[in-house]
Amino acid sequence: MKEIDDLLNKYFEGKTTLEEENYLKSYFRNEEIQPEHEVYKTLFHVFDEKAKEKIPQPVDEKNAQPNVKRFWKLTAVIAGIAAAFLMIIWVMPIEKNQDFAIVNGEKIENTQFAQNYALEKLNHVSYKLETNLKPLEAIATVKSRMEPVKKIPEIKKEWKK
């Protein structure tokens, strides 16, 4: 240990080489240090610690938002998702209540009655369409019979010649 003592004396006189100083540093990094040298251990530890220091990096502002803001932001997102979910449930018909019809504002759950009612209404629509198209058929007949009239101007021209 005299070697370390001599080196330490040389070190504190500012006469050690870099190589000798590195030797001292590695000695003080070791767990097995002589009790009389313990007093200098922290000094070399501080040098090692300082040598590892890096320039602080800029803080990511997005991640550095106060926790309160982040809490409310998260709450708003969750509330939005919940509201959308509730809307979907509300708008979509539930399976077990699908067999009903609304007739004149009344809920009809009798399936047979609903089907008959629907059939009756469809027949009614069919009849209406059929009867309402008859006048159109009459117009078409008149139109076809008027075709010879369109030829009168041409016949007149031939007569003049």
Binding site: Y11, F12, E13, G14, K15, V39, Y40, T42, L43
Partner: peptide
């Protein structure tokens, strides 16, 4: 000289 003085000060304090 300054290195020696600085180290001596640290040694004395320690």
């Amino acid at each position: 000289v300054n290195l020696s003085r600085a180290r001596q000060k640290l040694r004395t304090e320690l």
